[in-house]
């Protein structure tokens, strides 16, 4: 049995790309960083704050998310929302994910045609 570090490393690698997809889907309803973090973690998509915040910035820079400061509440917060480009990407990524899922299922069941 592989050590915990090794397992953790591979899990992290496997999950890395799925966080982007999860963000793009989740941010169809605008939300701010910490709320997004909590809701993803509640769903079992474990992501670190030091990964998520820079990721949000990068996706915004790439035009996949748009942002807006909400100053209505006591604390100003930056709300992110999935852009049209982001939607298109999410559709493609989701299709990919399903393809991989189906392929892995077939592999597991020994039906390799």
């Amino acid at each position: 049995m592989a050590g915990d570090d090794l397992t953790g490393g591979h899990q992290q690698e496997l999950r890395r790309g799925t966080v982007v997809l999860a963000c793009l889907i989740r941010l169809r309803t605008p939300d701010y960083g910490y709320a997004l973090l909590e809701s993803l973690n509640a769903l079992g998509i474990i992501v670190d704050a030091n990964t998520l915040y820079p990721l949000l910035r990068r996706l915004e820079k790439q035009g996949l998310l748009t942002s807006e400061w909400n100053t209505a509440e006591a604390r100003p917060r930056k709300f992110y929302r999935t852009s049209a480009d982001g939607e298109r990407l999410a559709a493609v990524l989701a299709a990919d994910w399903q393809l991989i899922d189906r392929a892995l299922t077939r592999l597991t069941e020994g039906d390799e045609r």
Partner: peptide, 14 residues
């Protein structure tokens, strides 16, 4: 600074 402040304060509250 604005972004980081939001992040820090949210985490502190939590």
């Amino acid at each position: 600074a604005r972004e980081l402040r939001e992040r820090i304060e949210d985490e502190v509250d939590a």
